Amino acid sequence: MNQEIKLVECPRDAMQGMHHFIDTNVKANYLNLLLQVGFDTIDFGSFVSPKAIPQLRDTAEVLAQLDLSSTKTKLLAIVANLKGVEAAVQHQEIDYLGFPFSISETFQQRNTNSSITQSLDTVSQMLEHCDRAAKKAVVYLSMGFGNPYGDDWSIEILEQRASELVASGVEILSLSDTTGISTPSQIAEVLPYMQRLFPNTEVGLHLHTTPSESDEKIRAAFESGCKRFDSALKGYGGCPMASDALTGNMATERVLSYLNTQQKGPALNLSKWEEAMAMSSTVFGKG
């Protein structure tokens, strides 16, 4: 794996908005393939209310079926409250806990049923649990490029919230474009700005997009010095808490294509990659 760039594969994000329930064994088989490909991290599941995200109610059962004996890939699980944190840290196999922290008050309430102020407290408690359980926290700055709810957005607001999180002990931030509204020029402005402000913090990108806009956003991200990038095979998925009309994830194959043209492509197990690409059509029910 290219140590310069960490690729985070996000089957959790790809699955969570699917209306038909994907069988637990199918999920586990797909994840076991992805674990053999060579990604830095797999965002594999979440410990949230099954009423909120019914698709992922079997995350613990899926985890029990994963073969981690011959992979260096790390596992990340999303949590939305302290109950989820307490459940996730019980699993030794999980390396990272991810928390969606929105700079939009409207979306924070919609996504986690809590205010920004309450969520800052949750993050502080999550960090304490992570320290005790030898895990790391990844905090997603959701609505990091703007929002459709009319809440104020500015780079100064983003900086304020990021500063609060870093001060509390967060070491990994991921700028998240939950509704796919970022532009290449905005990515090229915001990412380097945040990297300069927080040189000791790992700052990544979790972008949603339409296929027609993805290539230019990928180029803007890596030309701006991105070292941590989230994506999902074939661009499946999106955030069901943001909209019924899902804006998909970045397609992993497009990310890899760009990196390969720049001679920065990671060393992946291509046969397992091809198997995973083929299986994804079965998992998600479309080609």
Rank of each mutant, 00 (worst) to 15 (best):
V48F: 06
Y30G: 11
E253T: 02
S231F: 02
G146K: 00
T71G: 07
L68D: 03
L233Y: 13
V89E: 12
G180K: 00
V283C: 12
A242V: 13
M279K: 07
N25Q: 09
G98V: 08
I42E: 00
T179R: 06
D58R: 04
F99I: 15
R196C: 04
E93V: 13
A267F: 09
V62P: 06
L259G: 01
V123F: 07
A64H: 13
L33K: 00
S182R: 03
L141H: 00
R228F: 01
D215K: 10
R161T: 10
E216Y: 05
V37M: 14
G144P: 00
N249K: 03
G45A: 14
A267K: 14
M194C: 05
E93H: 11
E9D: 15
N2D: 12
Y193L: 10
C130S: 07
S185M: 05
S114L: 08
S176C: 15
H129M: 10
S231E: 09
V123P: 04
G287Q: 13
P50H: 05
T209D: 14
S104H: 08
D230G: 03
P266Y: 11
T71C: 09
E4G: 11
N32L: 05
Y193S: 11
S115G: 13
G237Y: 01
I157W: 01
T179W: 04
L68V: 09
G180S: 13
F99C: 07
E189V: 04
N113F: 14
D151N: 10
A60C: 12
G38W: 02
S214A: 15
L173C: 13
D58T: 08
F101N: 04
A220F: 01
T178I: 08
E202H: 14
Q16T: 07
L63G: 07
I181N: 01
G285Q: 11
V79T: 15
D58W: 01
T210M: 07
L268F: 14
Q125W: 05
N260L: 05
C130A: 10
L233M: 15
E189Q: 06
